[in-house]
């Protein structure tokens, strides 16, 4: 391994426990009660996004995100701007205590307007480091959509492909605006590994449209090891891996290496307990001899499911461990 960059995984807590850190919560409540308008809410969202970026930069991360602080959930924030997709009731998000709103597909899924472009440009203007943009993967979108049209009934591969085509339109816009890191998240794949070929096809569509941006595939909250040989061949520039749910993955990579750069999710993004840096460094030392080039150190998943103070402590630990690793290698 030539270099190890500390990077954000994806989302980040939008509020904390101090009154200052709760302004977005208050603004959303005011907006829901029509005490403030869209512009005022947007202003607070932008301000919080800038603060989240600054927090990540202060921690020492080399790639940051806007924390996805505007997202209601991983599905509705994207789906609400697609044609023929409505938003339905709440459902638990995998094995978390977080709930998302299910997309309801009533006709052909089509891109109709920019979704993340404005958010990205705000983030990019605020950041001094590259900004990562995250998209919920086409397969995960499809897997959790309620299908109300014969077009997709029993045809998840078709729905996945149409989500991928819609995302490709979005990606082209983002790349034109300067996007350099795109992360596509497919946690649903780990619960339905038999659908790996469907995900591979969707990634090909995105890869063809990503231009110079680097495309990362993030897998979390399930065992990656059974899919390891498949995903090594997929058309992505990086694999971002959750090691907390994959007990054998470290051994597999330590033995066989990786054909692709990795985002090493060795810091638990779901539990408050802070990792012992020495233990993480030992794990990195096992991986390093079999990995070439530059890799990323990150958390196992986004940090939104942690309290803000613990999320901050986690990214500080990511940065500290990456620095120690680099120092040790010098």
């Amino acid at each position: 391994m030539e270099a190890l960059w500390p990077v954000i995984h994806s989302n980040y807590p939008r509020i904390g426990d101090s009154p200052e850190e709760q302004k977005l919560r208050r603004a959303i409540a005011d907006w829901e009660q029509k005490r403030i308008g869209d512009d005022e809410l947007r202003q607070v969202e932008d301000e919080v996004a800038r603060q989240v970026i600054a927090e990540q930069e202060r921690a020492g991360l080399a790639i940051v995100s806007d924390g996805m602080v505007r997202w209601y959930c991983p599905f509705s924030h994207l789906a609400r701007k697609l044609a023929n997709v409505q938003i339905d009731g709440l459902l638990r998000y995998f094995d978390t205590n977080f709930y998302f709103r299910q997309p309801v597909v009533s006709g052909p899924v089509q891109w109709k307007e920019p979704i993340l472009l404005r958010e990205f440009t705000v983030a990019q203007a605020a950041a001094t480091r590259p900004v990562k943009v995250v998209l919920t993967g086409p397969y995960t979108m499809a897997r959790y959509s309620i299908v109300q049209t014969p077009l997709y009934l029993g045809r998840i591969e078709r729905l996945t492909e149409d989500y991928a085509v819609a995302w490709a339109r979005e990606v082209r816009q983002l790349v034109q605006a300067g996007l350099s890191w795109l992360q596509v998240e497919e946690p649903a794949l780990l619960h339905h590994p038999q659908d790996a070929p469907i995900v591979a096809t969707a990634l090909e569509i995105l890869a063809e449209n990503k231009g110079p941006a680097r495309l990362a595939l993030a897998l979390y909250w399930g065992d990656i090891e059974p899919l390891w040989s498949h995903i090594q061949r997929w058309p992505v520039d990086m694999l971002v891996l959750d090691f907390t749910y994959s007990p054998r993955l470290l051994d597999v990579i330590a033995a066989s290496g990786s054909a692709k750069p990795l985002g090493l999710g060795l810091i638990d993004g779901r539990n408050t307990k802070l990792e012992d840096p020495a233990e993480v460094l030992r794990r990195l030392d096992r991986l390093a001899p079999r990995l070439e080039g530059t890799h990323h150190l990150t958390t196992s998943c986004g940090l939104e499911l942690l309290p803000r103070d613990r999320a901050r402590a986690k990214i500080e630990r990511v940065a500290r461990i990456a620095e120690s690793f680099a120092g040790g290698r010098r």
Binding site: N97, F98, Y99, T272, R310
Partner: peptide, 17 residues
């Protein structure tokens, strides 16, 4: 008692440790 964690939308709870 830990800090606030989001459960959905704009709803949060103090997640214990």
């Amino acid at each position: 008692i830990g800090g606030l964690v989001r459960s959905y939308g704009n709803r949060y709870y103090h997640k214990p440790i």
